[in-house]
């Protein structure tokens, strides 16, 4: 259904979205690149001239850099693994016949609506506080010494908080996918003598492929930029400094815009590497 007229109309109608996003991408990116080659300290003299690649070198060699990249990847990978695995389990469970399925769905989806600042605050104070937190009470109940979650097990704690927020998303998408699975396929496999675990491995799991792809894609996009959870809980201490957070500290806390911008460029490169792989997977799996 494409005539010359509709094609040019299409270009025109796509233009606002494309131009806006292009501007949103290019303008700040150019400015970030510009600052990254400068010594720029807004509160201590402002623009102090060009410094070439000094910021890049400093950022790369700073002791915080590689750990922050590692932290970022651990958080993203950890949350993805937990939400996908638990999500598949929960989706299968919720797809079973039961009483009050709608109500359970409502309970399960709830964390998705909670703003990250709130969930971080609630978890930090009311659950993970070593004195008054509910988990501390639980530990004491069994005679154990309460864990100081956010300092002793800071990274797993954050992964847990973020997983709690994203598990509903994964579960519901996977549940929708499972519900769309033709039950005749499973029945045919059952007639062919396939036991339950093989039916799962050879029919259910492949059927979920596209849904899992979407879960991974969307979550990665949001997880790469998690901020509030760290800002509120540890403030980047105890090895929870992600690359994003490190840059945030350089720019806002130390007010070193040049250095932070160089970090920003690194973060953009990292995001692009991740995006490249994601797009390759997704491009294959989604008939976009």
């Amino acid at each position: 259904m494409a005539t010359q007229q509709s094609r040019s109309a299409a270009r025109l109608m796509m233009a606002p979205a494309v131009v806006l996003l292009l501007g949103w991408m290019l303008v700040p990116l150019t400015m970030t690149l510009y600052f990254s080659f400068k010594k720029y300290l807004p509160l201590r003299g402002g623009d102090l001239g060009w410094v070439g690649f000094e910021n890049y070198a400093r950022f790369l060699t700073s002791s915080a850099f590689w750990p922050s990249v590692q932290t970022t990847l651990v958080i993203v990978g950890g949350v993805l693994a937990i939400t996908v695995v638990l999500g598949i389990f929960l989706a299968i469970l919720l797809n079973q016949p039961m009483w009050g399925q709608g109500m359970v769905r409502i309970l399960v989806i709830a964390p998705f609506f909670v703003m990250p600042t709130v969930s971080a605050l609630v978890w930090k104070n009311m659950f993970m506080d070593p004195n008054y937190g509910l988990l501390a009470h639980l530990w004491k109940l069994f005679g154990a010494t309460p864990v100081e979650w956010l300092s002793q097990a800071s990274l797993p704690s954050i992964i847990m908080i973020v997983s709690w927020q994203w598990l509903p998303f994964a579960t519901l998408i996977l549940l929708t996918a499972i519900q769309s699975l033709d039950s005749e396929q499973l029945e045919a496999a059952e007639m062919d003598g396939a036991p339950a675990h093989k039916r799962f491995a050879y029919i259910t799991l492949p059927h979920l492929g596209r849904a899992i792809t979407v879960v991974i894609l969307i979550q990665t996009i949001f997880l790469l930029s998690i901020f509030a959870e760290i800002f509120v809980t540890t403030g980047g201490a105890f090895g929870t400094k992600t690359l994003s957070y490190l840059i945030f500290q350089r720019v806002l806390e130390s007010q070193n815009v040049g250095l932070g911008s160089a970090g920003g460029v690194y973060a953009i490169i990292l995001a692009n590497i991740v995006a490249y792989f994601l797009v390759r997977i997704v491009g294959k799996n989604l008939d976009a």
Binding site: M14, A17, V18, L21, W24, M25, V27, P28, L29, M31, T32, F35, L217, T220, I221, L224, S225, F227, L243, S244, Y245, I247, F248, V251, L252, V257, G260, S261, G263, G264, V265, A267, I268, L270, A271, N272, V274, A275, V279, V282, G283, A288
Partner: peptide, 21 residues
């Protein structure tokens, strides 16, 4: 498809990287 994926990839640009600009 390329435009769609490109649009989505702009979401992956780290916000902190462009916060100051």
């Amino acid at each position: 498809k390329d435009i769609l994926l490109w649009m989505l990839s702009t979401k992956m640009l780290p916000a902190v990287g462009v916060l100051y600009p």
